[in-house]
Design a protein around this nucleic acid. Structure first.
Length: 316
DNA sequence: AAGACGAAAGTGGTTGA
DNA sequence: TCAACAACTTTCGTCTT
C-alpha cells in the first residue's frame, strides 16, 4: 500500500534548528516537519484538506467510506409536501409513512448493518475527539468494516472495537498513539481496547509496522512546550539510540522520555523526570534506568548526580 | 522543598513447553 | 494452560541542590 504522507508547505517560515526553508506538511502525522533535519516545527496541524461535509456545492459529494451506506441512500423527507412544494393529499401521508418505514427497514436489512451504522457513528465521534486527520478516520472505518465482515465484532463492545480500529489506523499511518493515550482520550477501558485490538490483528492477519520512538516525539514535545533545540537534540539521540541493538524490544515511549531528559541535561535546560514521565506516560524510574543505559551506550559524558552505596535496609 | 537516586516488591504481557 | 521471564511501575527512604 502506498501512502502519500507529505506535501509542500505553504512556503512561509523556516526551521528554527537548521534554518532550512524546506518545511513540509505531514498530513498523516498532523505535523509540520523540517525536511532537512526532521524537526517537528508545529504539531496538531489543522487539516486544511478537502472538507467533505459541505454537500451544497452543486458538484456532488464524494462517497465516504466512514458512513455505513457510503452516503448513497436517498432519503424520503419527513415533510408533507412533494418536491415542488405542493401539499400532499390526505391519503398520500399514510402511504409515505409506510414507504419511510419500509426504507428504514431496507437500510438496515442485512444482519449486523444496524450495529455497523452505530459503530461508524461512534468511530467518527471518537476520531473527532482525538483531532486526527480525515485519512485516519477513513482507515479506521476500513479496519472496522473488515473486522465486522469477518464476524469479529460479535461478543466485543462497539467502543472497544472502534478504539482498536483507531489504534490500528494510527499505526498503519505510521503515527502511532499509545493504548494509554487512546483509552484516556476516548474514556474506554484500556483492556477492552487491547482485547479488541488482538482480536482484529489476529483475525485480519495484520502485519503492522513497529512504532518508532521518533513517531511519538512531536506530540510529547508540544505537551512539554519543549524548546526547539532540546527537541532537535532529543531527535538526534533517539535516532542514535534506536540503531543500537540494545534498545530493541523496549518501549518506545521510554526511549523518548529518556532522550528528552538527556537532551535537556546536555543543553542545560533541564526538564524534571517527573514532568517528562507525566507527558510520556512512563515512570520516573523507567526514565532513570533508560537514560543511564542510553548515555552509556552512546558514550555520552553524563553521569548520575551521585553514585550511592545504599545502607542495608533495616527490617521493619 | 523539589528533584534525583536506587532498592525492593508488585503487575501485566509475552513466550515456550 | 501454566511457569518463567523481561520490562515496567509503585513505593519508600535517602541524598543533593
Amino acid at each position: 500500500m502506498e501512502v502519500v504522507t507529505v506535501e509542500e508547505s505553504s512556503g512561509e517560515g523556516s526551521c528554527p534548528e537548521c534554518g532550512s526553508s524546506h518545511l513540509v506538511m505531514d498530513y498523516v502525522r498532523a505535523e509540520e516537519v523540517c525536511e532537512v533535519c526532521g524537526l517537528v516545527v508545529r504539531d496538531r496541524y489543522i487539516d486544511k484538506g478537502p472538507e467533505w461535509t459541505n454537500r451544497g456545492d452543486g458538484r456532488g459529494s464524494p462517497t465516504s467510506i466512514s458512513t455505513h451506506d457510503k452516503g448513497l441512500t436517498t432519503e424520503i423527507s419527513p415533510g408533507t409536501r412533494d418536491s415542488k412544494g405542493n401539499r400532499l393529499q390526505a391519503n398520500d401521508g399514510g402511504r409515505l409513512r409506510r414507504l419511510r418505514r419500509l426504507q428504514k427497514q431496507m437500510k438496515y436489512s442485512r444482519a449486523g448493518e444496524r450495529s455497523l451504522a452505530e459503530a461508524l457513528i461512534e468511530l467518527d465521534r471518537m476520531a473527532s475527539m482525538m483531532e486526527i486527520p480525515e485519512e485516519f478516520r477513513r482507515e479506521a472505518a476500513m479496519v472496522y468494516r473488515k473486522a465486522a465482515s469477518r464476524g469479529l465484532v460479535r461478543g466485543r463492545t462497539i467502543k472497544g472495537m472502534a478504539g482498536a480500529s483507531i489504534y490500528i489506523a494510527c499505526r498503519i499511518m505510521m503515527a502511532p498513539r499509545t493504548l494509554d493515550e487512546i483509552s484516556q482520550f476516548l474514556h474506554v477501558d484500556k483492556r477492552e481496547i487491547t482485547l479488541s485490538f488482538k482480536v482484529i490483528a489476529r483475525g485480519l492477519k495484520l502485519g503492522l509496522p513497529t512504532p518508532s520512538a521518533e513517531d511519538y516525539l512531536g506530540r510529547v514535545a508540544s505537551r512539554l512546550s519543549l524548546a526547539m533545540d532540546v527537541q532537535a537534540e532529543a531527535l538526534r539521540l533517539i535516532r542514535k539510540a534506536e540503531k543500537s541493538e540494545r534498545f530493541h524490544s523496549k518501549s518506545p515511549m521510554g526511549t523518548v522520555a529518556a532522550c528528552i531528559y538527556l537532551a535537556s541535561l546536555k543543553l542545560g535546560q533541564k526538564v524534571s523526570q517527573g514532568k517528562i514521565g507525566e507527558a510520556c506516560g512512563v515512570s520516573e524510574v523507567t526514565i532513570r534506568v533508560r537514560y543511564l543505559s542510553i548515555s552509556d551506550a552512546l558514550g555520552l559524558d553524563i553521569t548520575p548526580r551521585r553514585t550511592r552505596v545504599r545502607a542495608v535496609a533495616t527490617a521493619a
